[in-house]
Simulated scan of single mutants.
Amino acid sequence: MPDWLGDLPTWIGAGGAIGAAWYAFQTIKSQREQIGEQQTFIAEQMQFMDDQRQNLLLERAELQAQAEDRRVAQARQIKMTYWPQGSSGTDRYGNGSGYSGWHVEIANKSDDPIHNVIVRFGDTYDAASAKENEGFHHPDGGRRPIPVPQIPAGHTVVFESPNWSEPTVENNRPAVVFTDDAGTRWRRDSYAKLDEVPPGTTP
């Protein structure tokens, strides 16, 4: 046997080292592939969980929006129309008194009653009178106390402001304050803006 081939034990040892190195290489390669697969799986799971979280947030927002719509639904159906009585050349009662004021109609167009209804003018003045006028016979002429304890579904109550001079009328525009059938207090101003009245506050 030529010298350059070496002896048999050397060749056997070299072959074993090569085999061990190949096995180690394959093991490392397999581990890297497993780690890569695990990383891919983890990334997919994280993306899935994030998608689920986003879906839950959207569903929660939709449920909250629906609940808010239901909460405000009755209040949105309470309508206020108004106009001044008395203008230049005329007066509220047509008797030369010169008095002027607001005529305000509060119509409950919802399916449930509203409660504790008051029309306020400016920041200070409450309505001087209230009268229900639905074309029915009212023994009391339809007069109601202020605040009006209840306006039934489909009914309208007319509120009148105190008697003022014309400039005072324009400076004291009407707003209606009422409690819906669920117990929430609301205020609608002369520009139709609807706001919830926080508990314990005076609108």
Rank of each mutant, 00 (worst) to 15 (best):
W4D: 07
P113A: 15
K109P: 00
F121M: 02
G19R: 11
D112A: 15
T124R: 09
A20K: 13
T81V: 14
G19K: 10
R144I: 06
G94F: 06
S100F: 02
A130D: 03
T10L: 02
T179L: 08
F25A: 00
S110D: 15
G98P: 06
D140C: 00
W83K: 05
D69I: 05
P145F: 03
A43D: 05
N116P: 01
N133L: 10
Q64F: 01
P152Y: 07
Q77M: 12
A175W: 02
R188K: 15
D126G: 00
T184S: 14
V169M: 02
T168S: 13
R76V: 13
M80S: 02
P198V: 06
H138I: 06
I114M: 05
Y23I: 14
P199T: 04
S87F: 12
Q45F: 01
Q77W: 04
N95R: 14
Y82K: 02
R71K: 10
G19P: 01
V169L: 02
Y191Q: 15
D51Q: 13
T156E: 15
E160H: 15
P203D: 11
P152S: 08
D189I: 09
T81W: 04
S161W: 07
I35R: 00
G98C: 10
R185Y: 05
Q31F: 00
E44R: 01
Y93I: 01
A175H: 10
D7E: 13
D181M: 08
Q34A: 09
I106N: 03
E105C: 04
F41K: 11
R185S: 14
R92W: 13
S100I: 01
D112G: 05
T168V: 11
E33S: 10
S97K: 05
E170N: 12
S88E: 12
Y99S: 09
W22V: 03
S30A: 13
I42L: 05
Y99W: 11
P174K: 05
Q34M: 09
R92V: 00
S88C: 04
A21Y: 10
G16Q: 09
N172Y: 09
